[in-house]
Write a protein that binds this DNA or RNA. Structure first.
Lengths: 229, 229
DNA sequence: ACAAAAGTGTTGATTCTACACCCATGG
DNA sequence: CCATGGGTGTAGAATCAACACTTTTGT
């Protein structure tokens, strides 16, 4: 019968988080070395189980917070993975979420406690279960999203230079972008505030800092504008 | 503890299908009048429970097949819904799938057996649980996908006219499209075969029939082309 | 002959892409 | 004074959007 609420078919629901970060070396993901069975000692995504009295979005937030101390993070549900033996211990369906955070903001302390580490997406280790697939999937989604709407500001510090933004997009899309065309396209969107302040780290001349103007961005979103890099 | 496999937290997993169809009246969804509790007699999406030894994709295929007799249908996983009380009987997380089918092909017989009916998306009845939200979400996704890649041929009969294709896109995007611009854009994609055959139903002059060229389409997909209507 | 839908091109506006030089500053 | 990255504009190509008339044929 299709419609019986049979407890024989109950399953565990896990949440796994693909946490993207960005620094001068490029796009990275946060992984932990498991300190519990199964697969103890192997690398995996940050994850946990959905509690009975909790919705998925909150489970993702809770899990992220537990491992990083972060809150108010951009997260988006990605996909449910349900291969029968994806988890050898018990039938477990996992719903993946991806998060964008800026590496500087994360809480070093908590990350150390949980044996978490940032890896460049190019040279991340092999992961347990179907986590490799989840990461690939998340990267595709991030690229896709980025090529349509300018998300990704979450990956940068609050104040950032045009160069940082350019490099972020190059890292996400893994292709080179023309500096002048990029800047004029971003400017034409009118979603950045140019500050009077300059970042003097990167060069002798110094480069202007910008902040992301969330209000203008939301306003533009209504006319679902497109970013074509 | 984050990582205990506690059977106390096991939940039921449902699959709900948003089944889109298209005919001369526009874009439609397939709904059933529930003949079981809870909410007997109300309209709902076609759905069922995941079995313990089944993956989600197969559950969606099985459920669709049970209610319509259809197989080999384009389906795509959409989203997992997890509000605590979304199903009043038991804690149930539902994963939605959407399917695109052409109405002519469906098995009238089975649809009648299950009290299923096609509704124009504009005047569909109120649905149980969070199914309204699922439908809205699916429409958004369909629009989004359609505006990027030409999916949607699944909604048409094998042979179709340019007018049908145009009207399909107008229905999905719910905006008018310029006939000439549309046709030349579609032609420039080179993913249709123009047949020698004409459809004489629609006019005295008759209009050429086309089929979708899946091989060319797949080939183009590799260069991730964009359709901008 | 006429009604009804099919089919077909052009033009101006916009957007995209490719490309190179001067500027400001700290050392 | 010079090395380093920052900042800026243009022209030709491509694409987009708006637009109207002729063709066919069944009645």
């Amino acid at each position: 019968m299709l419609n019986s609420y049979s407890s024989a078919d109950k399953v565990l629901l896990a949440v796994d988080c693909i946490i993207f970060g960005f620094d001068h070396q490029g796009l990275k993901i946060l992984l932990i070395k498991r300190d519990f069975e199964p697969e103890r000692g192997k690398w995996s995504l940050i994850g946990g189980f959905l509690k009975r009295d909790e919705i998925l979005d909150n489970a993702a937030i809770r899990i992220l917070n537990t491992y990083t101390g972060l809150h108010d993070i951009y997260m988006e549900q990605l996909h449910a993975y349900s291969e029968i033996d994806r988890d050898p211990v018990d039938r477990t369906i996992s719903v993946s979420y991806y998060a964008l955070i800026n590496i500087e903001n994360h809480n070093e302390e908590l990350i150390k406690n949980y044996h978490a580490e940032w890896f460049s997406i190019a040279d991340a280790p092999n992961l347990i279960f179907d986590h490799n697939e989840m990461v690939q999937h998340a990267i595709r989604r991030l690229r896709y999203r980025t090529s349509i709407k300018p998300i990704g500001f979450e990956l940068l510090p609050e104040k950032f230079t045009m160069r940082q933004l350019l490099e972020l997009y190059e890292a996400i899309l893994s292709k080179e972008l023309d500096k002048r065309n990029f800047i004029s396209k971003i400017n034409s969107l009118e979603i950045l505030n140019k500050l009077d302040e300059k970042d003097m780290q990167s060069s002798r001349k110094g480069s202007y800092l910008y902040t992301f103007n969330k209000e203008k961005y939301e306003e533009k979103l209504l006319n679902d504008f497109v970013l074509n890099l």
